[in-house]
Amino acid sequence: MQPVQPKTSQRRGESAIEKLLVLSAAIFIIVIALITIFIFSRGLPLLFEIGLGDFIFNYDWRPTKGAFGIGAMVAGSLAVTLSAMVWAVPLGICTAILMAEIAPPQMGRLLGNMVELLAGIPSVVYGFVGLVLVVPFIREYLGGNGLSVLAGAIILGIMILPTVINISRDSIMAVPKEYKEGSLALGATHYQTIFRVIIPAARSGIITAVVLGMGRAIGETMAVVMVTGNAAIIPGSILEPVRTMTSNIVLEMGYAAGDHQAALFATGVVLFVFIVALNMMVNIAAKAGAARDGK
């Protein structure tokens, strides 16, 4: 007869594993909570003192003279991020469609490997490439000193491509093959099937890809610091230099003290809230998609 209950030594082993897993999860949650509490406790007091509106929309940033307005940096982050998305999102989605639906399997795999490679390059290398190739190119052919919104947009766009491509491709490939066959069996062409059935069915995944790409772009620091020139002004054109919120923190953290340091933490709070809001948008989009599909 096999014993119905496992042996006690075995059960003791399993409960130890369970405790270890719970402990890991608890540590993870505590670390996240501590980081959040720390950032908010250092940033929020100043934020309330100045007023949220003044802090975000005022573009007078003279931290050593007590003027804390990050308007120029907010505009800088938006300018660089949006102009990166303008070209990288369409390119990324088209690449994903090609990889998932059109390219022969071998070519799809090759492209996939290249995208993995792109994702694995450290951001400082992207920044360096931008500094050595993109910035001089802009200075030479388009004007300005090259350190600009445009340089940031080009480098950031390349950096978010893997995110946009991978998540879009996965969601396109997750579309049930019955949809595709059903459409083709009705006499639709492959392209009609892609654009009228497959892409709409993968829509919430593609939206997720775009929003996560945007989150990555807003949060990126190193490459952006290296190629955008970092002047705390509102840029008049894409050829002018700009400073993002992330650049602002990393550039001044080393010597900031007192209210100045608090203002940098407050910048972090704004970024934090921004990115959390983006992630919530992803969840809402995914849920709305599921509701539409009746799942």
Binding site: G182, S183, T189, V197, P200
Partner: peptide, 28 residues
């Protein structure tokens, strides 16, 4: 394929409304 239609094992309704599902073929 317009002349020879096909129905599959797993009902393959598209993630759209009832109307759009039926109108899909004529539209394309």
């Amino acid at each position: 394929r317009k002349r020879v239609g096909m129905v599959f094992q797993k009902p393959s309704v598209f993630p759209m409304s009832v109307y759009e599902n039926v109108a899909y073929g004529p539209r394309i």
